[in-house]
Design a protein around this nucleic acid. Sequence first.
DNA 1: CATTCTGTAATTAATGTTATTACAGTACAA
DNA 2: TTGTACTGTAATAACATTAATTACAGAATG
Lengths: 136, 136
Amino acid sequence: MNNGRFPISLHILTLLARAEGSLLSSDFIAGSINCNPVIVRKEISNLRNSGLVESKEGKNGGAALAKPAESIMLSDIYGAVRQSSLLGNSRNTPNPDCAVGRDINTHLEHLYAEVEDVLVNKLHGISLADFSRQFD
Amino acid sequence: MNNGRFPISLHILTLLARAEGSLLSSDFIAGSINCNPVIVRKEISNLRNSGLVESKEGKNGGAALAKPAESIMLSDIYGAVRQSSLLGNSRNTPNPDCAVGRDINTHLEHLYAEVEDVLVNKLHGISLADFSRQFD
DNA sequence: CATTCTGTAATTAATGTTATTACAGTACAA
DNA sequence: TTGTACTGTAATAACATTAATTACAGAATG
């Protein structure tokens, strides 16, 4: 994952945590992140699917946390945005006639699972409340 | 890091570990990875700069490990290829007039440093010898 | 019922990554 | 001493991914 989705989602959630329940519009959030509001709405849509955020349409609509910031762990955010393996994958399928090429993807997957496990454990120890408290 | 550099470098090094000192050509290695030999030469050049590999030009040239596979840790490989933060960065600079926007990059950096630390520790516990033994 | 907002699709623009081409230089071996 | 088989590296092109933009239907409010 080397795109901006994790930091953008964390930014959104930090703003929502600090808004303490009042609805924030995608325009306002985009103004803080300095990105396009459609990107914000897409990320909010994703966070909603993960149960972290709820949103309201129409005039005076916007988004708010779906549960207390104390109970949202950074690992939840990571899980919501994760899409590819942490340390990358080669684009081509390795040569099956080579002892290393044949099995490397299996062993890589195993390694990545182990490594991601320690990362997720670490993130599981930090709540959104912890993170957003730093801005006080 | 979401490109293929880590897996490609690990693939190269695994082949070299198993070659036990005999030189492998970039063409041979590229054949196992199934990528372009120039990519292999570039990665080898990078690994050489990190002191993990040595190579010889000219006829019958090629690459070999610069030190025993037992003393090359996966964290060394990670360090050799790492170029961007693990969990990504937003492309735009956030709004400095917003309490969150103003400080989020500082807090993100701090978080990333902590998280990367546990990842590197994990990788530091696995040697290239450990990894390549799996292919026996 | 005009206004302000979300939700989402479709397109374009920007960026990042890998492949390819090209060629100079090195080492070996006949 | 010259042909051959390699590395090293730059420059470019092809491809993939990511973010921005445009467009518009639909929801809630006053």
